[in-house]
Design a protein around this nucleic acid. Structure first.
Length: 238
DNA sequence: ACATTAATTATGT
DNA sequence: ACATAATTAATGT
């Protein structure tokens, strides 16, 4: 729960970590240096919360490596996964939404490394750093757009189509080329997929088994690879 | 068309 | 050995 012991600024934070990321790409080396000097670096185990929904938003974060699941908890205690965040993106940017508490819980989907800064620096970042504001508002725009799409999908598509699109989205965003297809490059269970698609793990299991039999998909424990993306697209439209 | 319940098996530490 | 993940069948809405 307490994150004190491992949260310590690492002595060696190379500037090349940030130079190619959209929010910082317009900045010179000196600016990047001061940004890094204000940052705290922290490594997270798989499946741990970086912050919790509703908690005071004390810091904002940048994911350097790994994946983040953005999760909301319903009153009955079940999790709903809103979206995944890949390395290189900011998250926990409540301030950009005009909030002072986190709107959702962030859980690492894999072992991850993130930088973070105290929220009070947000305004300074926005005003002093060219391109920071436009780029971050662009990504939050993309995210709410994505979530809107998901709402429409939930309402209109059948379960089979929803998990098919979920798989395709994961493959597009986090896919890693492998011999017989594209693998989702973080551990993902059927429970996880069901939480993304508003179903049960059983239904997901049945679908994956069926798809595996038809050669669309290969899955071992916590690993899913898509061998025939096009066939999944077909299912989406069926 | 899908959830729920429950029993069974597989897999990772 | 133990816990967690996945499959499978039966039953329910």
């Amino acid at each position: 729960m307490d994150d004190r012991p491992t949260r310590k600024a690492l002595p060696r934070l190379d500037e090349s970590l940030l130079t190619h990321l959209p929010p910082f790409s317009r900045l010179d080396r000196r600016q990047i240096r001061t940004i890094l000097d204000q940052a705290t670096s922290r490594r997270y185990e798989e499946g741990v919360a970086v912050f919790h929904e509703g908690a005071p938003a004390e810091r904002f974060h940048l994911l350097l490596d790994g994946y983040i699941r953005v999760v909301r908890i319903t009153p009955t205690g079940e999790q709903v996964t809103a979206l995944h965040i890949p390395a290189g993106q900011l998250f926990g940017i409540a301030q950009a939404l005009g909030r002072n508490t986190y709107p959702a819980t962030a859980i690492t989907a894999a072992e991850s490394i993130a930088l973070s800064w105290p929220m009070r620096l947000w305004q300074a970042f926005v005003t002093e750093y060219d391109g920071f504001a436009t780029e971050t508002y662009r990504t939050v725009g993309n995210r709410v757009g994505e979530m809107n799409n998901r709402i429409v999908e939930m309402a209109t598509l059948r379960v089979e189509q929803r998990v098919a699109t979920a798989l395709l989205r994961l493959v597009n965003q986090t896919g890693r080329k492998v011999e017989d297809g594209i693998e989702i490059d973080f551990p993902i269970t059927r429970q996880d997929l069901s939480e993304m698609t508003g179903t049960t793990l059983h239904t997901v299991s049945r679908l994956l088994s069926a798809w595996e039999k038809d050669g669309l998909v290969r899955s071992r424990r916590k690993r899913v690879t898509v061998r025939d993306p096009h066939a999944l697209v077909e299912l989406t439209q069926a």
